[in-house]
């Protein structure tokens, strides 16, 4: 449960740090780091406008998305502490629970009968499909390396001993950061600040959401970011005391947020047609990790 609390806390300021970093790099002072959460709270108090085309799916979808991310966070461990949910193969559960949220976000976009939202939905479905093999190959490789198949056991027994395994750690972090960026529809794949519906992915899907629902969806994104940050933190935290690991956790979250901000400041979004190729290269990085693990274990041929 400790990881749940930590993730919820860091979700409160994560996007704030990203936005602050972006404004500092572009020479502006920028809003405080709690501005995004204030915006969300304001949204939660507002009434809503619904499209006449929509059905009950549109009403329930934001709640399903939110619940699915909450459920996924419950799986995440923290150092030596189990997540609330922990069993062999729990990362499969993690991925599939998140997929249910995605399923509902996609059909809720289609529910509006808009000419734009389907476009975003189609892209989201395709990109999240392309991410899956990278995630599973990464986790499969880590399972091979450690001999365990649950998040907690894998992270707990993950030790970076030799140089090769340091390289593995770096690559694993890279894959996780990229997966986080894609799943949250951030920069190299999607630009949250774009103002043209035709080039959006996630933003265009929620064009018709307003009020409480929009607030839920926005906070779902924050939670998701913090959740992936926690996964990355877990790669390094290991078997230390809580008074070391908790500051470390927040440090890594902040570092992650700052790097997201920097990445967004200095890169441009890829062309839509290149996105798929880019995402699929993640799988090849995962494959490299897999071969690296085989090298470490001496099982290569």
């Amino acid at each position: 449960m400790i990881s749940f609390a930590l993730i919820v806390v860091s979700s409160l300021f994560f996007t704030g740090i990203v936005i602050r970093t972006k404004s500092l790099t572009s020479g502006r002072k920028g809003p405080g780091i709690f501005q995004p959460i204030n915006d969300i709270i304001r949204l939660l108090k507002k009434g809503a406008v619904y499209s006449e085309t929509t059905s009950f799916i549109f009403q329930i979808a934001p709640s399903v998305q939110f619940a699915s991310v909450l459920m996924a966070i419950l799986v995440i461990p923290f150092g030596q502490y189990h997540g609330f949910i922990s069993f062999d193969g729990d990362f499969v559960f993690f991925a599939y629970v998140l997929a249910l949220g995605k399923f509902f976000s996609i059909i809720s976009a289609l529910d509006t009968g808009s000419s734009f939202e389907g476009m975003g939905a189609s892209r989201e479905a395709l990109y999240s499909m392309l991410v899956e093999p990278a995630f599973f190959m990464l986790m499969g490789s880590l399972a091979l390396l450690t001999g365990y198949t649950s998040f907690h056991d894998i992270f707990f027994s993950l030790h970076f001993g030799s140089y090769v395994s340091y390289a593995l750690g770096v690559m694993a972090t890279f894959v996780l950061v990229m997966i986080a960026m894609i799943e949250n529809s951030r920069m190299p794949v999607d630009d949250p600040k774009t103002h043209l519906e035709l080039t959006m992915v996630h933003e265009v899907m929620i064009l018709d959401n307003s009020g409480f629902d929009l607030g839920l969806i926005l906070h779902t994104t924050n939670l998701k970011f913090a959740m992936y940050g926690a996964l990355i933190a877990n790669l390094f935290v290991g078997n230390l005391h809580w008074y070391v690991t908790i500051p470390m956790f927040f440090g890594i979250q902040m570092l992650f947020a700052i790097s997201v901000g920097l990445l967004e400041s200095f890169t441009a979004r890829y062309r839509m047609t290149h996105n798929a190729q880019f995402i699929f290269t993640l799988s090849s990085v995962s494959l490299l990790i897999f071969f690296g693990v085989l090298l470490v274990l001496g099982k290569f041929l």
């Binding site: 809503a48 406008v49 499209s51 709640s63 619940a67 509006t112 734009f116 409480f212």
Partner: peptide, 27 residues
């Protein structure tokens, strides 16, 4: 159950505020 709880909480909040209906946003 979590999905249902979130939905009930959401509906509770949403019912306090006005909801209006309009056409889908089409740019």
């Amino acid at each position: 159950l979590l999905i249902i709880t979130v939905y009930i909480v959401r509906s509770g909040f949403a019912s306090k505020h006005s909801a209006s209906y309009n056409v889908t946003w089409g740019c």
